[in-house]
Design a protein around this nucleic acid. Structure first.
Lengths: 246, 246
DNA sequence: GTCTGATCTTGGTCAGACCAGTATGCTGAC
DNA sequence: GTCAGCATACTGGTCTGACCAAGATCAGAC
C-alpha cells in the first residue's frame, strides 16, 4: 500500500477519496469551502466523472460534504444524521443489540449529568424545569409522556455542553425512541410507576441544581435501574404487587 | 416529497438508495445475502449503472454492504470503521473537540468497567493482568508504554462484553491515540507519573477483580482526573514540584 | 446605471463500450 | 461414468462523450 504514491496506485475511487480525505484531514479544506467542479477533479486525478461522483457521494453520506445541485460541492460541518443512519441499519440487523445500546446511553447520560452539574447555566436549569413539569402534566399520556421523558433526558445531555456527548446521545436515543414509548405503556399496568417517574426525575433535577455530580450520577443510574426492573417485571407478568427492589 | 411513490419521484440516487434501504431495514436483505447485479438493479429501477454504483458506494462507506470485485455486492454486518471514519473527519475539522471526545471516552469506559465487574470472565481477568504487567515493563518507553496503557483500557471495555460500548470506544480511542502518546512523553518530565501510572492501573485492576462496580468506576474516574491534572500542569510549565492533587 | 438575456458552468444522468477476472457449464478425454 | 480443461457468460471497474436543467455571470440594450 505504501509503495504507491497516495494518489496513484489505488483504484479510481480510492484515489479520489484519498485525495479528498487528505485535504479534509489536513485542514486545507474547511467547512464552507467549495470544492472544484467534478469535471476538474476528474481531469486532475485522471479518472472519469462517475468515479468522482462516487467519492463525492461517499463523503456526502458521511456527512462531510454536501452536493448542491448546479452550485457545486461544499464542505459541511459533520452532522449527527450519519451516526443515526449507521445505527439504524446496524440495529435493523441485530435487534438483540438494543440492550447493548441502552448501556451506551446510560454511559453517555451519566457522564453528561456530571458535566451538567459543573457547566449548566440558568437557561439549562430552566429547560430542565420545564421538562420536569411536562413529565408531571403528561403522566397519563403514553405518547406525550414518552416525549416529555425523552426531552428531560435530552435536556440533561444538552446541559453538559459537550457536543460529542450530545451527538452520540442523539444517535443512540433515536434508536431507543420506540423502546421509550413501549415503556411508557407500562405506566397503565403499573400505577406505582407514576410516582417513580415523577419523583425520580425530580430527584435527578435537584441533584443537578445542587451541582452535585456524584449524587446526580448515582440518582440517574438508579433511575435507569428501576426502569429496567419495571420492564423485567412486565415481562415476567408481575403486576405491581411487590416493591421495586431488584 | 410524499406525493410521489417511494421509488419513483426521487432523483436517481435517492431512488436506488431508498429501494435498498427499505429491503435492508425490512430485513428482506440480511447480512450475507448477495444483491442482484448492478446492471439488473439499474434496469430494474430505470436508472443508469453509475447511479447504482453511487448508491452501492454510499452503502459501502456506511459499512452496510461490501462490493467484491467481480463477485458481486453482499450485505455485511455493520462495522466499526464507519464511525471511525466519521469521527476522524469530524475531529479534523474541530480540533477543539478533543477534550470533548475525551469526555465521551470517560463516559464509555466508566460504564464499561461497571459492566466488566459483573460480566468479566477469567480470560478477561488474564488479559487485564497481562496488560497491567506490560504497563510496568514499558514504563520508561514512550511508544510501547502508550500502547500498553491503551491496551489496558481497551481490555476493560472488552471485558464489559458490550459490543456497542466496544465499538464506540474503538472509534473514540483511535482519535485519542496521538493524545495518548504525547501524554506518555510527559512521563520523562514528571517522574512521579511512573508510580501514578502503575499504582493507578493496579488499583483499577483490583477493583474489577473484586467485582466492585462503584469502586471501579470511582477509581477509573480519579485516574482520568489525575491524568488531566498532569496535563494541565505540563501546560502551565510546572515541574513535578507539587503533589498531584486536583 | 439598470435591466435583460445569451452564455458559461455546474451538477444529474444516460448509453454504450471495454477490461479483467470469476463461475459455471459444456465438451471431450480418460 | 467421471473428471479435467477450456469457452463463455457474468460480475464489478472504468471510461468516453453526450445531453439536460438551472444557477452564475457578464455583455449589451435601454
Amino acid at each position: 500500500m505504501e509503495l504507491k504514491r497516495a494518489t496513484e496506485g489505488e483504484k479510481g475511487f480510492e484515489k479520489v477519496f484519498a485525495f479528498l480525505r487528505e485535504r479534509l484531514l489536513a485542514g486545507s479544506l474547511k467547512p464552507g469551502d467549495r470544492l472544484i467542479s467534478e469535471r476538474e477533479l476528474a481531469t486532475l486525478l485522471g479518472v472519469s466523472r462517475p468515479i468522482v461522483r462516487e467519492a463525492l457521494r461517499a463523503l456526502t453520506v458521511l456527512g462531510i460534504v454536501e452536493i448542491r445541485d448546479r452550485i457545486g460541492t461544499v464542505v459541511t460541518r459533520p452532522d449527527v444524521s450519519v451516526l443515526n443512519d449507521f445505527f439504524t441499519f446496524a440495529l435493523a440487523q441485530q435487534a438483540d443489540m438494543l440492550d447493548d445500546v441502552m448501556q451506551a446511553r446510560v454511559a453517555i447520560e451519566c457522564q453528561a449529568i456530571r458535566l451538567a452539574c459543573e457547566r449548566a447555566n440558568i437557561a439549562d436549569f430552566e429547560r430542565l424545569q420545564r421538562a420536569l413539569a411536562k413529565i408531571g402534566e403528561t403522566i397519563d399520556e403514553a405518547d406525550a409522556g414518552g416525549m416529555a421523558d425523552f426531552d428531560f433526558h435530552r435536556a440533561i445531555v444538552v446541559a453538559s455542553h459537550s457536543e460529542t456527548l450530545t451527538v452520540l446521545h442523539g444517535s443512540l436515543a433515536g434508536l431507543l425512541t420506540h423502546s421509550h414509548r413501549s415503556r411508557r405503556e407500562l405506566v397503565q399496568a403499573f400505577p406505582s410507576m407514576k410516582t417513580y417517574l415523577i419523583d425520580d426525575h425530580r430527584r435527578i433535577f435537584e441533584a443537578v441544581i445542587a451541582r452535585d455530580p456524584e449524587r446526580a450520577d448515582a440518582t440517574l443510574r438508579k433511575h435507569f435501574a428501576i426502569g429496567d426492573e419495571y420492564r423485567r417485571r412486565a415481562i415476567v407478568g408481575d403486576i405491581d404487587k411487590t416493591s421495586a427492589s431488584g
